[in-house]
Nucleic acid binder design. Structure first.
Ligand code: SF4
Ligand code: SF4
Lengths: 145, 145
DNA sequence: CATATTTAAGACTATTTATTCCTAATTAAG
DNA sequence: CTTAATTAGGAATAAATAGTCTTAAATATG
């Protein structure tokens, strides 16, 4: 069950890095993130550009430039991140994708698919980046090997 | 959240058609299924060929040939179908896909991702094709428009 | 046996997603 | 002003997924 595209996976990991290891200065460079996580610098740059466009990040060019969260990590819920990375319709997708769905009668698997989606959405909307960053810092969980 | 590939979606729908509208004779032709559901005949054929190879279906060539379930619909759980269509590792996939995962410490989202997966897996393993077929027949749910 | 029907097999094409690469714009610092 | 560092933008390439098409094999029927 592929929950996230590569964009989603890399984007999330890179963001979590930023949250978990905030720089001394105002901005953290993409190069440092991608190098540390072993991700493609160009790919991460592309992903972050979109997050910047969507207002989740702010960026600054030039020496000692980089990216930073647009608001405190406490106020950014995983849900917002996922939607930014995967599209706002992320939780609207259906399991078997019937034409004209959502209308009249549901398909055979609608009920528990909805349950599962709702649960995940709920979890995501309750989890802040700050919390995850803290877990990473205390090494309760890990971001790489 | 894309849960199933096109192969998975079409395959499941086509299978459910077979279960819900079993033929008078022993086999149901792929042509009838694909025409009725508005799916590509060739694509469905391709998908079914794999299900046949995996022992979920049996096929028979020639006039009044077609495909049939290899065992009673009561004994086929959705889980088996999904795994056949999407690969046995379907429920092993992880959310952010860290290298060497499952080993030492989990990543930040492992816990609730596991919950969700377990729930879905459980639902799937409790739901038989027979049950879904019955729901379709009684029009409690629908397979197409 | 001849023909029509149906699945099997796999090549081929198209579309989407993933990834890399090149060039421009911005800015700090000497 | 020059240079180096950094993100911005978008083109180009690669890989994976989706979908089509052609030919072969099997089988029923007359
Ligand atoms: S009923 Fe629900 S799961 Fe089924 S096709 Fe519609 S939206 Fe998707
Ligand atoms: S800890 Fe779990 S969710 Fe996180 S990368 Fe590993 S398997 Fe995936």
């Amino acid at each position: 069950m592929k929950a996230l595209s590569q964009v989603g996976k890399y984007g999330l990991r890179a963001l979590l890095y930023l949250v978990a290891y905030p720089p001394d200065s105002q901005y953290l460079s993409i190069r440092q993130i991608s190098d540390d996580l072993g991700l493609s610098f160009h790919f991460v740059t592309k992903i972050f550009r979109e997050l910047t466009e969507k207002g989740l990040l702010i960026s600054y060019r030039g020496p000692s430039g980089g990216i930073a969260l647009a608001k405190p990590a406490e106020e950014i819920m995983l849900l917002e991140v996922i939607k930014a990375l995967e599209g706002d319709d992320y939780f609207d997708k259906c399991l078997i994708g019937l034409p004209h769905c959502g209308s009249a009668k549901p398909c055979p698997v609608h009920e528990f698919w909805k349950e599962v989606k709702t649960k995940l959405q709920h979890n995501f909307s309750e989890t802040s980046l700050a919390l995850l960053g803290e877990k990473i810092r205390t090494q309760e969980v890990r971001l790489d090997d």
